[in-house]
Design a binder for these strands. Structure first.
Lengths: 338, 338
DNA sequence: TTGTATGCGTTATCAC
DNA sequence: GTGATAACGCATACAA
C-alpha cells in the first residue's frame, strides 16, 4: 500500500523521528537530510494528513455556511466571489475550506456546531445568516471561532464583516440629489432585515441633509428581488407617482423597476441609483442608466477570513475579541465607466 | 479538556470498546447501552472525528475545484447551484465538501493531487476544467476517484457530466426555424473550446435538417461574454446583415447582442435563442424576447456527486468504470413562462 | 455481550 | 544530531 514514515526511515537507515524532523524543517545534519529526501523520492512518499491532524488535534479546515435553497437567487450570486476571497487567505495558511449546508429553517443548523465539536473544523465563517440566534448562542457557548458576514443583533459579541449599508444608499441618493432631483422614491426591502433598516436610514439621512422631508407616498416595502422591484414600480405607477428618480434597496429591485417602466412605455430615467452587495454582475452592463454602489465582495471574504484566523490564534491565549468591521464601497455609474 | 471515549467508559463503568460499539450501532445489550448513553449525555461527549478518520483512513471529504479568478465571470454564476447539488448528495453520505482553489495556469494544479495523496480528500469533482491534460494524467496515475463537469478529450477514461451541447443549440435554432426564420445568425464562442465546437455542430445540424446551407457571413466567433456578444453584433451590423434572427453560444453573448441592437435603435427581434449552462439568472427576466435553453445545473451537481460516490465505493473492488453522462435540457421562452 | 490488547501514522519527550 | 518510546482517540480482532 502507501508507504509510511517508517518505510522511509528504514530505507534511509534512520529512525522515523529523524524523518519527521526533515518533514517539519527541524535541524538535521545535511548529509542525513539528503539520504532521507532521496528515500522520500524513491518511495514517492507523502505524509498522511489524517495522522498529522490527529496528533496535532487541528483539522486545518474552516467551515463556510451555504444556505440550502432551491434554484439561484440574487443573494447567492456573490458567494463565489466571497469564496474566492476566503479561499485565497485559507490557502496561504495551509487551511482548507469546507462548505456547510445550512437550512434556512434554523432549528437544525447545528451541523456547524457538530463539526466544530467533533474537531472537523477549527472555525467558521457564516454567510448572510437569517435571524438565527440559536446558532449564535451555541457559537458563544462552545467558543467557536466565527465571523459573520452580514448583520446580526449588535448585542452579540461576535465578529462581523459587512458592507456599510447606511453609507451605501446614502451615496446613491446623494448622487441623485446632486443631479437636481428633489422627489426621489425608495423601493425598500422588508424592514425586518437589519440591512434593510440601515439602507432606509441612509435614504433618510441623505434627504435630511438637503432639508427634504420624507414623503411616505414615495416609499414602498417589497421583496428584495426582481419581482419585488417590478411589482413595487407598478404600484407606484398605479397611484399619482410624481418622483423624478428612484432609488432601490438593491440592483435586483432596480432592474425590476426599470422593467416595469419599460413595460409601461415609460422612458427609462437615467437616475436609478442602487446599492447592493447582491449586485447582479450584469445589471450595470445592461442599463447604463443604472448607477450602482458596489460592495467590495472579495474584500469582505478576505477580511472575514483574516479575522477568523486571528481569532483562532488568539483564542487559546486570550479571550475572544469582538471586531465588527465595515468596509468601504465603490461607486459605478453604468457600463461606460466600468 | 474535552472528554474522550475513555471518560465515557469509566463513568459508565464499561470498557471503551463497548462505548465504541454504541457509537457505531453495533450490538450491545439495551441496558448497558442506556448507561453509556446517559454517560455521553452527562459528559457532553462528542467523538473526535480526527481520530475516527485516522483509524478508518477515510477523510470523509470530497474536493471540488474552484478556478481562481479576479472578479465574477458568467461561468462562476452557476457554481453556487452546482454546489447545492453536490452538497445535498454529500450530506446524505455524511461527507463534507472541500473547495480546492485551482489556477487556470494549469502547471500547479497539483493541489488536488496532493490533497488526495495526503488522504485529505477521498475523491474530487472538477468543475469546468481548462484543457488541463496534466491534471487528468495524474488523476489516472494515482487512480483518484474523480468526475469532471464539462467536456474533456474523449479518449480519457474519466467520468464526465455535461449538458448536451449539441442538442441545446439544436433546439434553440429549431425554435427559430419553426417561427419561420430562414436566415439565422450564430454568435459562436472561440471554437477551441470543445463545448463551443459542439454547439456550433448543433447549429449546423438544425439548419441541415431544413436544407439550409451554412452562410459564413452569418457566423462570428467571439469571446463567450456580454462584451463578445456586443462586439459581435456590432460587427454584424457594420456589414450587410440580413439575418432575421440570431442564435448565440450562451445568454451572456445574447444579452450583449441585444444591447448592441438597442444601442443602434434597432427593434429587438423576438428571436434570439440561446443555450447556456452559464445562464445568467436575470437574462430571461429582463428580455421576454429571449428564448433560452437551460441546462439542469443542480442536477449536474447531484449527478456528478452520485457518480463520484459510486466510483469511490467501487474503486477498491473493481476497476474504474467510465461513465460519460449527458443531461437533458429545459426550455424557457422568456419571463412570462417562467 | 463484553473486556483486553493492539494498531493506525505521526509528533514529541526524553535520553544518549 | 539522532534514536528509542510514549502518546494522541478510536476501532477492531480476539479472548473470555
Amino acid at each position: 500500500m502507501k508507504s509510511t514514515i517508517r518505510d522511509v526511515a528504514s530505507l534511509a537507515k534512520v529512525s522515523p523521528a529523524t524523518v519527521s524532523r526533515v518533514l517539519n524543517n527541524k535541524p538535521v545534519r545535511e548529509q542525513t537530510k539528503k539520504k532521507i529526501e532521496s528515500a522520500i523520492q524513491k518511495l514517492d512518499y507523502y505524509p498522511n494528513m489524517l495522522a498529522q491532524n490527529f496528533v496535532s488535534n487541528i483539522s486545518y479546515h474552516i467551515g463556510v455556511t451555504m444556505t440550502e435553497r432551491k434554484g439561484l437567487t440574487a443573494v447567492d450570486q456573490f458567494n463565489p466571489v466571497l469564496l474566492q476571497g476566503i479561499l485565497e487567505v485559507a490557502k496561504n495558511k495551509n487551511y482548507s475550506v469546507t462548505l456547510i449546508p445550512t437550512c434556512e429553517a434554523a432549528e437544525h443548523n447545528n451541523l456547524l456546531v457538530d463539526l466544530f465539536r467533533r474537531n472537523a473544523i477549527d472555525g467558521a465563517i457564516i454567510l448572510d445568516p437569517s435571524d438565527n440566534t440559536s446558532l449564535f448562542f451555541e457559537i458563544l457557548k462552545y467558543k467557536i471561532p466565527a465571523v459573520v458576514i452580514g448583520r446580526i443583533p449588535t448585542n452579540l459579541p461576535i465578529s462581523t464583516v459587512d458592507t456599510d449599508n447606511v453609507e451605501g444608499i446614502y451615496l446613491a441618493v446623494k448622487h441623485l440629489l446632486r443631479l437636481g432631483h428633489k422627489k426621489i422614491a425608495y423601493l425598500s426591502a422588508p424592514l425586518n432585515y437589519i440591512a434593510s433598516q440601515d439602507r432606509y436610514a441612509g435614504y433618510q439621512k441623505a434627504l435630511a441633509e438637503c432639508g427634504i422631508g420624507i414623503n411616505p407616498k414615495l416609499i414602498l416595502e417589497k421583496e428584495a428581488s426582481f419581482e419585488g422591484g417590478y411589482q413595487g414600480m407598478l404600484q407606484f405607477l398605479a397611484g399619482d407617482f410624481e418622483a423624478t428618480a428612484v432609488s432601490a434597496y438593491n440592483d435586483a429591485m432596480a432592474i425590476g423597476a426599470i422593467k416595469a417602466l419599460q413595460d409601461n412605455k415609460i422612458k427609462i430615467p437615467e437616475q436609478v441609483a442602487v446599492i447592493g452587495h447582491d449586485d447582479l454582475p450584469t445589471s450595470a452592463m445592461i442599463y447604463p442608466a443604472l448607477s450602482t454602489i458596489h460592495s467590495p465582495i472579495e474584500e469582505m471574504g478576505t477580511e472575514a477570513a483574516n479575522l477568523l484566523f486571528r481569532e483562532m490564534e488568539n483564542l487559546a491565549a486570550a479571550e475572544r475579541k469582538i471586531m465588527p468591521v465595515k468596509l468601504k464601497l465603490r461607486q459605478s455609474c453604468g457600463f461606460a465607466t466600468a
